[in-house]
Amino acid sequence: MSITVNHISKSYKNVKALEDISFEVKEGELFGLIGPDGAGKTTLFRILTTLLIANEGTATVAGFDVVTDYKKIRNSVGYMPGRFSLYQDLTVEENLNFFATIFGTTIEENYELIKEIYVQIEPFKDRRAGKLSGGMKQKLALCCALIHKPKVLFLDEPTTGVDPVSRKEFWEMLKRLQKKGITILVSTPYMDEAALCDRIALIQDGKILQIDTPQAIVKHYPKQIYNVRANNTYQLLNSLNAYRHNHSVFPFGEFVHYTDSRADFNPKDLVDYLESKNLSNIEIEKTEPTIEDTFMELAK
């Protein structure tokens, strides 16, 4: 096991940030921690990177205990905190050089590992880090976290505030790093990124809602979801919320995701009901659940 977490709890003053968290990450796995802001993701990352001590429970990273063996962990993990945490007044190359030196290595020594990412920012190597675009900053931060060839990589919300193109590229890079045997623990508030992980833990309010592969998580969704649409979304929402057989009603992009509490639900009944509410252009069709649907079902 690359990471083990056993019954970790952590409170700040009277706020419970984490409550009895347990999970394991296998060697070479890409494990996602999915949850909104304030769910406790950063706190968990800080406990695993030895920056914080849990109130209860134990954890190991790369076989070392996070409290007693913290020095060994600091030697063998790469960490990319939530905000961009590089020196803005140093150039790309100076930043990379600096992190290489404090990890007791050189850029040349581990160039192979970062090469693919670094070539993309190399044209700007004399530019100060503060002047890079969001996507570039993120690539540089990843290079800096990788420069010492860590066994485990901790990425705390690496794609927050990054545009879709850079996000996609970033996940492609993670997949390649994973192939090189690096264990990756990544957190994200974006449910659509969950599908890109091997396994995920859904987390909210300091508690884990579910841990499984993304496929298994959606497969276990208990209901049939219907995409509903009509001429007026707001009225449609109100009508569905007022419908006494509803199980859940959530706006979902251009549709409303609807589940019914009855086992023998017939969409025709719903159409009739909505028409009685003066809605027109009504469409109802079955759809597949997403991670987000599961998350909402669990968090309800």
Partner: peptide
């Protein structure tokens, strides 16, 4: 403030 202290702490320095 910049968060670089976090990275420095999680390093062998």
């Amino acid at each position: 403030e910049l968060g670089t202290m976090e990275i420095l702490l999680v390093s062998p320095i």
